[in-house]
């Protein structure tokens, strides 16, 4: 059974239909890159997968024991967060909230989970530092660690490398790839076609009138990849 399956999904953004009749599925262990022009509804699709937005048609179903609130999510950064007074460990721990329910404070088990994820992403040494003093790459690692605290199965990443320099970008991609190899399914929205071609197992390419979904090799053969050579905006 597929981890996530959408059927004839139709989504709107500010009363305009941006996605119509979209059907695709993601199985456990896959790495799906969502590419496409600006305004093609990539972020709207992400929000729908996270149940932050209601579809106006079609359905999204979860399988393999995936529960909606157990999706790890790496959002695009907002301006307000950049000067937020919070320590690294406070931010990472907040990823554990979905297993707490109404109970207050965090248990030892959750603190351990947060510590493991911080070590995994190499930010354990800076856990007392303030989030707002970190570099862009470090901030993304903190948010990635938080997302890992929230999930064992699926990570949704919304343009994780925007604004990062090439070195840090490559590092972050390697980390995401390692996480994928450890069994976590990845869905990533990106503008970076090279990364999509290098890491993805499946591609969802969204253009206004032409949606492509398939494996990487199908994508390479398809005409959807043709326009990359021209514009490179996909």
């Amino acid at each position: 059974m597929a981890l996530i399956k959408t059927e004839n999904l139709t989504l709107s953004y500010e009363n305009m239909t941006v996605i119509k009749d979209l059907s695709f599925e993601v199985n456990s262990g896959e790495y799906l890159c969502i590419v496409g022009e600006n305004g093609s509804g990539k972020t709207t699709l992400m929000k729908a997968l996270l149940s932050l937005k209601k579809p106006i048609g079609g359905s999204i179903t979860f399988g393999d024991g995936l529960i909606q609130k157990e999706i790890g999510y790496l959002p695009q950064q907002t301006g307000a967060q950049r000067d937020f007074p919070a320590s690294v460990s406070e931010v990472v721990l907040s990823g554990c909230l979905n297993s707490r329910g109404i109970k207050p404070f965090y248990s030892i088990r959750e603190r351990k989970k947060a510590a493991e994820n911080m070590k995994r992403l190499g930010i354990y040494e800076i856990k007392q530092r303030s989030y707002r003093e970190l570099s862009g790459g470090q901030q993304q690692r903190v948010l990635l660690a938080r997302a890992l605290c929230a999930t064992k199965k699926l990570l949704l990443l919304d343009e994780p490398v925007s604004g990062l320099d090439p070195m840090v970008t490559a590092e972050l991609y390697e980390m995401i790839s390692d996480i994928n190899k450890s069994g976590v399914t990845i869905i990533m929205v990106t503008h970076d076609m090279n990364a999509a071609l290098k890491y993805a197992t499946h591609i969802l390419c969204m253009r206004e009138d032409n949606i492509f979904f398939g494996t990487l090799s199908e994508f390479r053969k398809s005409e959807a990849s043709d326009f990359l050579k021209g514009e490179g905006s996909c």
């Binding site: 929000k47 609130k69 959002p75």
Partner: peptide, 9 residues
Amino acid sequence: FDENFAKAT
């Protein structure tokens, strides 16, 4: 800190 993340989880 992050209303969308909190909602999503």
